[in-house]
């Protein structure tokens, strides 16, 4: 459904150019959940931003259902692809109530029955009507992230791009948000592209994953291969080992 071929992203900051993504390719099937794993600076978030037009693509092709995406992206694209950001404290406008956060996309895209849609979106993410007129500062981190998910889903997209959706949250809240995302996907047949630094989260959420380092794709693994520790590269093996935690034996 979503095809990325030899994607390259270059940011030019004055004198020097920074190549954030160098030739990354992958395919995501309809209804699949695809993970991108990497450490900071690996370019994993930039890939997501390039897909939705927030980062400049300098080379390569991004296609949705075989159709290359227009530049700049049109309104129809945003109705099919939405994104959830990492930091729920930065992704909600501090002076807008939940109600205006959710009604804004409806107004822009010209949806009807707005009250009804907002009410349903809030119910879907498990918040309920009591939260509708609150400001972000009256919400906890987990509640904010639920609002962000509701905002992404209110346009009824087919693909949801998730940029570290739980890394700013406490472990117990992370479980709730992951369950929510999992349930929504099963219910609506959504397609996910999930970016995370946490192998456990990606293994829990995604059927296939791409490991990235320094802007390049290191390898693609299936969930089963990951569980079997059948990593083909040293880098992935190191990530796997680090995800277990600290081990004293190798301190020596």
């Amino acid at each position: 459904m979503l095809t990325v071929e030899n994607l390259e992203v270059t940011f030019s900051t004055g004198a020097e150019d920074v190549q954030a993504v160098r030739g990354v390719s992958f395919d995501v099937a309809r209804g699949e959940s695809y993970g991108i794993v990497g450490e900071s600076g690996s370019g994993k978030s930039t890939v997501l931003r390039a897909i939705c037009g927030l980062a400049p693509t300098s080379a390569g092709r991004i296609a949705l259902d075989g159709q290359p995406l227009p530049r700049p992206r049109d309104a129809g694209f945003y109705r099919r692809v939405q994104m959830v950001f990492q930091d729920p404290y930065a992704s909600l406008h501090p002076r807008h109530t939940v109600d205006s956060v959710l009604s804004e996309p409806l107004a822009i895209q010209g949806f009807d029955r707005r009250d009804e849609r907002i009410a349903r979106a809030l119910d879907d993410v498990g918040l309920g009507q009591g939260f509708r007129f609150r400001y972000p500062h009256q919400l906890s981190g987990g509640q904010r992230q639920r609002v962000a998910v509701a905002r992404a889903l209110i346009l009824e997209p087919q693909i949801l791009l998730l940029d570290e959706p739980t890394s700013a949250l406490d472990a117990s809240i992370q479980a709730e948000v992951l369950n929510l995302l999992d349930g929504l996907r099963a219910e609506r047949g959504l397609t996910y592209v999930l970016v995370s630094h946490d192998l456990a989260v990606v293994s829990h959420m995604c059927e296939r994953l791409l490991v990235m380092q320094h802007g390049q794709a290191v390898e693609e693994l299936t969930r089963d291969a990951l569980r079997a520790r059948a990593a083909g590269t040293d880098y992935t093996r190191r990530l796997l080992k680090a995800s277990v935690g600290f081990t004293r034996e190798d301190a020596a």
Binding site: L54, A75, Y78, S91, L92, E104, P105, I108
Partner: peptide, 25 residues
């Protein structure tokens, strides 16, 4: 910031982003 990016992802025009999201701040 992410909330401006999110608004852009809803297809908002520049005028709308400036007027409804940046000016109030």
């Amino acid at each position: 910031s992410d909330f401006i990016a999110a608004t852009r992802l809803q297809g908002a025009s520049s005028l709308r982003i400036i007027w409804k999201h940046i000016v109030p701040l």
